[in-house]
Amino acid sequence: MVAGLSPLLAHGQIFTCKDATGRTVTGDHPMPECADRKIVELSKTGVVKREIPAPLTAEQKRQQQLLEDKRKAETVAEDLRRQQDRALLARYRSEGDIEDSRRYYLSLSQDLVKRDQAMIDDARNQLKAANTEAEFYKNRKTLPAELRNKMDEANRAISANQKSMADHQAEMARINGKYDETLKHYRELVSNMPEAQGGR
């Protein structure tokens, strides 16, 4: 027992800590010297009732807040994931529903690709006609301005629609990738449903 502790214990309880110099400080209530130290509370029989940890430092508080923020963000993300999973199962009743949706959105992009190709073909025909007409002026140093404009417009149309077609083809690849992931996740969700597990 710490020297000088008996008279204090007679009063019911005591608080003790080590101050900055390592000296044991005791009293019947928490002392100012223990404000930034771990405090031990003893019962009247000298048995440790509890330990009061030292207050957190500014850095410890910052780290604690970071951990708390991380836990909250993880909880929010998990809640959102569960909501999205429920929405996925509500939207698609079968793998066939997913494939139907895939085909629908692919068909929209396919129609745009066909339109791009048709416009490219039309512009190429216009360019071909302009080149044929230009044969009549091959002995001249320059072509008529109107004919040059036709050729320039046709080339611009070909270039613009080729870019548009590439964008729509990339969109089709994105759609396929999205629905591949959706189908994979749907299968995982269905396989983890209680009725699916019970049938194994």
Rank of each mutant, 00 (worst) to 15 (best):
A173P: 01
N176K: 12
D180S: 14
Q117T: 09
L183N: 08
D167F: 00
N176W: 03
L143Q: 05
M151I: 09
P144C: 08
K163A: 09
G177A: 09
E146G: 01
S159V: 09
T142Q: 09
A145R: 13
A134V: 04
A160R: 12
K184D: 13
N149S: 00
I120C: 08
Y137P: 02
K178E: 06
A154M: 06
R115A: 13
A154Y: 03
S159G: 05
N125A: 15
D152C: 02
T182V: 15
A134L: 00
Q126V: 14
Q117W: 05
G177R: 09
T132K: 09
I175D: 00
S159K: 13
N155L: 06
A160W: 07
A118G: 14
A130W: 13
E153L: 11
K128A: 13
T142L: 06
R174K: 13
A154F: 02
S164C: 00
D152M: 09
M172H: 05
S159T: 14
A154W: 01
N131Q: 15
F136Q: 05
I175H: 06
N131Y: 07
N149G: 07
T182R: 10
T182W: 12
A160Y: 10
N131L: 11
K184H: 15
N131E: 10
D121M: 09
N149H: 04
P144D: 03
N176S: 08
R174H: 14
P144R: 03
R115S: 13
H168L: 01
R115W: 10
Q117I: 06
R124F: 10
E153T: 14
A166T: 05
D121I: 13
N176M: 10
K184T: 11
A157K: 13
L127M: 14
A166D: 13
T182Y: 15
I175V: 07
K128L: 05
